[in-house]
Design a protein around this nucleic acid. Structure first.
Lengths: 181, 181
DNA sequence: TGCGGATCATAGGTGCACGAACAATCGGCC
DNA sequence: GGCCGATTGTTCGTGCACCTATGATCCGCA
């Protein structure tokens, strides 16, 4: 994520950086044979990074994030900012650490996410009277309104992300991901 | 990723930041009811961020990365550095952009990854004589040796990541991810 | 031959992710 | 009542991810 999120994205582009193209001319170019013929040009064993589960998860997450950016009604919100917003919408009031646990964010990451949301005037922070270590977070009216307003397009994000799959496959994927997540 | 990758991780810990705990006392604390009773404490509509495909992919990728760090024989290598190493092992010689396409890395990201690999003395960069825009990349002997040496533990990473699933489920997950990735 | 579009590498900027280290505070237990 | 371990939030440092903008180079085509 990150980057310049100040401009509505091109609705035509669906991709992240590039779709892991399987084979381009490069490796077959006349002078690209190998450094000194010391390396074979295919894996000596069958290991293929691109086929590994870690890489596939990264790719899928990459595409999901790209779709989020180009589909959400407010393209200036990042996925994590949106997640924090929605969790606060449900919970009403949360400490930073608890928000982090609910959204699987590191405390140090929560720090940055809520700081930016506060700077944008979407949430308020106040000290917890009963536990002076804590900072309580809540949406302010602007944040609450924005949250409500974005739900529809957020559903579309999920819809578009799962678009290549039929309903049964979608359920299967979700279940499997929950088990390895 | 990132952080201090200078110390072997605790083999007991398998998690990322925290397992998205469903409900902790916080939201039910006496004073944590709601700001001014202006927000209900459950989603007014049925939208649950944590259930969305984007969040599940992020969580799964998070765990896969954590397992990578604590399983790979060389814990100082990041997933992307490792991926670059393996792709160069297969291809022998690649331009930076082509490496980026093969591994789904943005050109700007490739920049940083290969710079660090070069600083560690694992790869060499030289100008392409036939196309002066390009920088060709190749493993040097140290990089080639390291790459060969890490394959085994890399297989273990995938194995551990998929551990909760039986063989049929693993194949299903991989196929579904390829279709949405 | 020369021009315009495409490609390659890079720099600068923002945001997420996470480990480590801190200071303040809380809480249980002697 | 006081100490010690745990929790909370923060800062710092590193790395990935991606956008924009630039300059150099390549290539097809008139």
């Amino acid at each position: 994520m990150g980057a310049n999120r100040k401009r509505p994205p091109d609705p035509a582009s669906i991709s992240g950086p590039a779709p892991t193209d399987p084979h381009q001319p490069d490796a077959q170019r006349p002078d690209a044979q190998r450094p000194d013929a010391q390396r074979p040009d295919v894996a000596p064993d069958g290991y293929e990074v691109t086929e590994q589960i870690g890489h596939l998860l990264r790719r899928a997450h990459q595409r999901a994030t790209a779709l989020f950016q180009e589909t959400l009604a407010d393209p200036t919100l990042t996925p994590m900012q949106f997640a924090a917003l929605m969790k606060l919408r449900d919970a009403g009031l949360l400490s930073q650490n608890h928000l982090g646990r609910l959204t699987a964010m590191d405390p140090a990451t929560v720090q940055g996410v809520i700081r930016r949301l506060e700077e944008r005037g979407l949430i308020v922070r106040r000290a917890d009277a009963t536990d002076r270590r804590r900072t309580l977070l809540a949406l302010n009216p602007a944040g609450a309104a924005l949250a409500d307003q974005l739900v529809d397009s957020a559903r579309t994000v999920s819809e578009r992300t799962l678009a290549p799959l039929d309903p049964a496959e979608r359920r299967t994927l979700v279940q499997l991901l929950k088990r390895i997540g």
